[in-house]
Design a protein around this nucleic acid. Structure first.
Lengths: 223, 223
DNA sequence: AACAATAATGAAAAGTTTTTCATTTTTCTT
DNA sequence: AAGAAAAATGAAAAACTTTTCATTATTGTT
């Protein structure tokens, strides 16, 4: 996971970063609101941790800005303040979650996971192995950020396979779902598309995901 | 808003329901986990408030079940327990938010709003005039259920126009968003695509939605 | 091991979409 | 009202996707 830490207290920021790195994530520190926006525009993150109090632009300002500009990223507000009035305000401003300082790293990590998982779920991102299918843009990225260019039919096919990973799908079913009409066995398109999809996936990942079950159909190996 | 209150303590449940009704929402009470699932299957809600401790099936069980069965509804867990271990567990189970008893109605309402807003924001249907764009299947239907067949570029263009309806968009911006590369004014594709989109939309609806602002760009009339 | 059925493949054909081009039409300025 | 700039258009060219076809490879059965 790629985490942006927007926090002006260097000590806290560095400590968080260290923890994240230890857990195998990437993390970048922004020391004020303006820097935060700059990074958000230029780079890609899975989540941003926003300190409530920051120089130049406050966390709240950044939060507003992110929502107005439709930057697509889940936000967790870090706040030293307590009391309902501010919690209410935070959620209403469009933050996805907030956490009150001091907090344990364990709780923060759980919230990050929850928020990211929910975000992916509701922003229509399907994850399979280290591939990410964006169901809206219909683009496929590997976690190393290379894009895999799938055609429409390949995308639909892959999506259906992922939604049913581990399940054997007959050509009949694939046909119905991907091509949307009754299957006529005199055609070969399904096999041909499988072939092309296989090639692209293997070229990109080096792995063989799609198994043939002789006489029955195909299945995507469950990861 | 239509709220399902899954809470076995009648007093709390009734009090919440009263508050919701006062604020102009609808609310239904489920007194145990099984009833909750039954209601979720049969009726439509915007959010479910799940008590952690409930007879028959606990809130956690219901939560798991909702996620496994891919029922599409945001969940707020109500919990009397405190301490990190349980918060962590709750979020990891796929709840969208949780709140610790006792809580103020104001905070609960704020959380409901936040959670529901997010869910709707990421919904996959765009409505414009009497047209419905499904961002997943990328099909456009008019409310009279005729499909309008748009090509990829036309769809992307229309979507972007809708997301910015009423706003004048320069060719530069359209180009960047729809074609995803730097604009070179020696091309004409943008105008050509606008033309084709206009034709399809007018054929289907009889209306002219896209206005030209001479020297500036295009705009979709705000409905 | 031989066969029949099923699946995989490369390459070509058919079908669509995207882009370009030349020309016409519209809009703004003077 | 005339001229220049901007936009619209139809049709053709280019690019890409989808499908078919003929052939080869693989699998399961006898």
């Amino acid at each position: 996971m790629n985490i942006l830490i927007a926090e002006d207290e260097k000590q806290i920021a560095e400590s968080l970063k260290k923890h994240f790195l230890e857990e195998g994530h990437k993390a970048l520190i922004a020391l004020d609101g303006e820097e935060t926006l700059k990074f958000l525009f230029e780079l890609q993150f899975d989540v941003v941790l926003l300190d409530w109090m920051m120089p130049k632009l406050s966390g709240i300002d950044v939060c507003k800005y992110i929502n107005e500009k439709e930057i697509n990223i889940p936000i967790i507000l870090l706040t030293a303040l307590t009391g309902i009035k501010n919690k209410v305000e935070a959620l209403n401003l469009g933050a996805d979650d907030y956490i009150t300082k001091p907090f344990s790293f364990e709780e923060l990590m759980a919230r990050i996971n929850a928020v990211v998982r929910r975000y992916r779920k509701t922003t229509d991102i399907l994850i399979y192995d280290n591939l990410e299918l964006n169901l809206i843009t219909r683009k496929v990225e590997s976690f190393s950020y290379e894009e895999i260019r799938l055609t429409e039919k390949e995308f639909d096919l892959f999506k259906f396979l992922i939604l049913n990973k581990g399940v054997i799908l007959s050509k009949d079913e694939l046909w119905k779902k991907v091509w949307g009409r009754a299957y006529s066995p005199q055609t070969n398109v399904c096999e041909a598309t499988i072939k092309n999809l296989r090639k692209k996936l293997e070229d990109a990942t080096g792995k063989k995901f799609i198994k043939t079950i002789y006489g029955e159909g195909y299945t995507l190996i469950a990861d």
